[in-house]
Design a protein around this nucleic acid. Structure first.
Lengths: 195, 195
DNA sequence: ACTTTGAATTGACCTATATCAAGCGTATTT
DNA sequence: AAATACGCTTGATATAGGTCAATTCAAAGT
């Protein structure tokens, strides 16, 4: 099934290890294809994040709502990324986040218990998990540094060079929220930087 | 050696698995005790972070210097925490960070290559690594959310409730930098919140 | 086709926080 | 003990970015 081909390629590429026939059978048996329509929620605040999803197609945003009712986007996700609130997923505690499909979304999803099995039984999967966790540590640290040390304009420039796809795929107000800016500020900032 | 006792306890507690005699011998053979005096650097910008250190005693800060020459503290570290720039450590690339001892510092340190061995050979060590990586993911996500959604004052309150030790161990200007504030702002903020 | 909704832009104004500067007290250094 | 440096506070001022409101335009729903 073509859904899974991209998934298998991804695992092998990231992990640097091959998947056997059996491995692939096992993954297919326990990763369920699931579709979400635009605006639908993969996860809602207060719920436990029971599933982790691998995005086959589409996009999503992870956001919180603060006391004043303002939304803050923490993550924007595209194809070949994992979708979950990891805190809730690992600890099975209620999530503080919402994960909403921004375009029609297709994922392959599985549960925490299943993932534990894969980690034990599939060397490529376990190697992948380690690489992802490293990358994740690095990326979050970078983002934190960027948020602390750079001005709004520098953060926008940084986004353009690191994730140019974002500009194509996400509306500007989402990008603004992801950068920690009001939509107005981002709009003005673009006008000035083009001069 | 009492240095190692605390280290072994830590590994077993975090991982939930026991260390055998052999495991402990192996760790002692390849984790080297190292001391740094206050103000000494564990890592300097531009160098590769060859070692990861487990803090037995003392404290340190991880910071960058931006284009305008301003320092930004990304991490404040105390006993039973790991000390490294993980990006540089994993990838063996030059670091953008400085890690400086804020008090006299005692660590147990080892290299990337050795850590790989431990992960393979010591189940408790590998389990610990997974837990730490999960915790780390969760903590950074939380910090990111806090930085984005909260005002300076709320971030300070948050720090007080999550890391009360910090107030005892770190000077106020370091705390300010960690919170992304100028020392003046933090000073004023304390005055107002006590009212 | 008509209506509604929502994204983007622009202007006027406001506020949180930074910056600059001075003064004070307490560690550190010599 | 004197000298120096450094951390903290306080005041005056500057500024980046937020908020509120109005307008335009395009997309989506009926």
């Amino acid at each position: 099934m073509s859904n899974f081909e991209a998934f298998f390629d991804y695992i092998q590429e990231i992990s640097g290890k091959p998947l056997s026939e059996d491995d692939e059978q096992l993954l297919m048996a326990h990763f369920k294809p699931k579709k979400f329509r635009k605006r639908q929620y993969f996860l809602q605040e207060g719920d436990v994040c029971k599933y982790i999803g691998f995005i086959v197609k589409g996009s999503a945003r992870t956001y919180t709502v603060d006391d004043k009712g303002h939304e803050h986007i923490l993550k924007l996700s595209l194809e070949n990324w994992w979708l979950a609130d990891f805190e809730s997923f690992y600890k099975l505690t209620p999530s503080r986040f919402n994960i909403e499909a921004l375009e029609n979304l297709e994922v392959l999803q599985s549960t925490n218990a299943q993932i534990e099995e894969f980690l034990k039984d599939i060397p490529a999967f376990s190697a992948m998990a380690n690489v992802i966790s490293q990358n994740n540590t690095i990326a979050t640290q970078k983002r934190m540094q960027t948020a602390m040390s750079y001005t709004a304009e520098e953060r926008y420039e940084d986004l353009i060079s690191n994730y140019p796809q974002f500009l194509q795929r996400f509306p500007q107000n989402m990008i603004a929220s992801y950068l920690g800016l009001s939509p107005e500020t981002l709009s003005r900032l673009k006008k000035n930087s083009s001069k």
